[in-house]
Amino acid sequence: MAASPPPYNPVPVAYQGGAGAVPVWLNKGDNAWQMVAATLVGLQSVPGLVILYGSIVKKKWAVNSAFMALYAFAAVVICWVSWAYKMSFGDKLLPFWGKTGPALGQKFLINQAALPASTHYFSDHKTVETAEITPWYPMATMVWFQCVFAAITLILLAGSVLGRMNFKAWMMFVPLWLTFSYTVGAFSLWGGGFLFHWGVMDYSGGYVIHLSSGIAGFTTAYWVN
C-alpha cells in the first residue's frame, strides 16, 4: 500500500516549531524595531536633510546643496558595505582602527549580529580584550543600522559647506572622510577600540556622530572659505 500523505498543516513552515527555517537566536520584535529605528534615522537624511539643505540656501545653490546630501547618503552606503563597516567594527588592526574588508557575503550577513564583528584579543592572542555582544537579529540588520548613522554624519557635515564647496570636490571628500575619520571614531568608541577600554561611553552618537561632524564641518568650512 502507498504511504498516506502527511497531515495538512496550515502554519507556514517558517513558523512551525523545530522546522529550523528561523534560527533560534532571531527575535522578530528586536529585529523589527532595529530596522524601524534605522529607517527613522535614514528618513532624517533622505528626504529630510535633502529638502532642508535645498531650501535654506540661495536659489542658484539649491540643487547643488540638495544633491550634496543625496550623494553623501548614496556614496556612504556603497563605501560602508565595501570596506568601511569592517574598519569600524571588524578585526582589530590598530587600537583605533579595524581591518578593511567587505560586508556583503551572504554567510556573513545572515549570521547573528555581533558587535564588534569578532572577538578582540590582546597581543598574547589568548586574553580577551573586547568580547562580542550578540543581539538577537542578523548581521545584515546591524550593518544597515550602523550605515545610516555613518551617512547622516556626512550629511550633517555638509551643512557647514553649503554654497562653498564644489560638487566634484565633495564627491571625493565623502569617501575619504568616511574612511580616514569616521571609521576611526566608530572603532575607537563602538568597535572595541582604545576609547572603549578607557571607559568612554557614547550611547547616542554624541562623539562619533555629532562631535566629529561638527569639528570636521568647522575645519572644512575654514579651508574652503
Results as ranks from 00 to 15, higher is better:
residue 73 F to P: 01
residue 72 A to W: 02
residue 99 K to D: 02
residue 42 G to Q: 12
residue 75 A to D: 02
residue 104 L to C: 04
residue 74 A to D: 01
residue 99 K to S: 06
residue 96 F to D: 02
residue 89 F to M: 15
residue 46 V to M: 10
residue 38 A to C: 02
residue 36 V to Y: 03
residue 30 D to L: 07
residue 48 G to D: 04
residue 69 A to R: 02
residue 59 K to D: 15
residue 54 G to N: 06
residue 79 C to I: 00
residue 95 P to F: 15
residue 85 Y to R: 08
residue 72 A to H: 04
residue 43 L to K: 14
residue 93 L to V: 11
residue 64 N to R: 14
residue 97 W to L: 12
residue 34 Q to Y: 00
residue 72 A to T: 08
residue 71 Y to V: 00
residue 75 A to P: 06
residue 69 A to V: 00
residue 80 W to F: 05
residue 95 P to K: 15
residue 37 A to C: 03
residue 36 V to F: 04
residue 50 V to K: 02
residue 29 G to H: 10
residue 100 T to C: 08
residue 81 V to M: 11
residue 42 G to S: 12
residue 69 A to H: 01
residue 67 F to K: 15
residue 40 L to P: 02
residue 85 Y to W: 06
residue 33 W to A: 03
residue 34 Q to F: 05
residue 65 S to Q: 12
residue 42 G to Y: 14
residue 104 L to N: 07
residue 29 G to E: 06
residue 63 V to K: 13
residue 63 V to P: 01
residue 41 V to Y: 07
residue 50 V to W: 01
residue 51 I to E: 02
residue 67 F to D: 01
residue 90 G to V: 05
residue 34 Q to A: 09
residue 102 P to A: 00
residue 93 L to P: 05
residue 49 L to R: 08
residue 68 M to G: 12
residue 27 N to M: 03
residue 86 K to C: 08
residue 34 Q to R: 05
residue 72 A to M: 03
residue 89 F to C: 13
residue 100 T to L: 06
residue 31 N to S: 12
residue 47 P to Y: 04
residue 85 Y to H: 13
residue 45 S to D: 14
residue 46 V to L: 13
residue 34 Q to H: 03
residue 33 W to G: 01
residue 94 L to P: 15
residue 44 Q to L: 10
residue 30 D to C: 12
residue 32 A to S: 11
residue 101 G to W: 04
residue 66 A to T: 01
residue 79 C to F: 00
residue 102 P to V: 00
residue 43 L to M: 10
residue 42 G to L: 13
residue 94 L to Q: 15
residue 35 M to Y: 07
residue 79 C to M: 09
residue 55 S to H: 06
residue 26 L to D: 02
residue 33 W to F: 08
residue 47 P to T: 07
residue 54 G to S: 15
residue 97 W to S: 10
residue 68 M to P: 11
residue 75 A to Q: 13
residue 55 S to C: 09
residue 54 G to T: 07
residue 78 I to Q: 15
residue 86 K to L: 02
residue 29 G to I: 09
residue 104 L to T: 14
residue 65 S to N: 13
residue 89 F to V: 07
residue 71 Y to E: 06
residue 64 N to S: 15
residue 77 V to E: 10
residue 49 L to K: 10
residue 52 L to P: 01
residue 49 L to S: 05
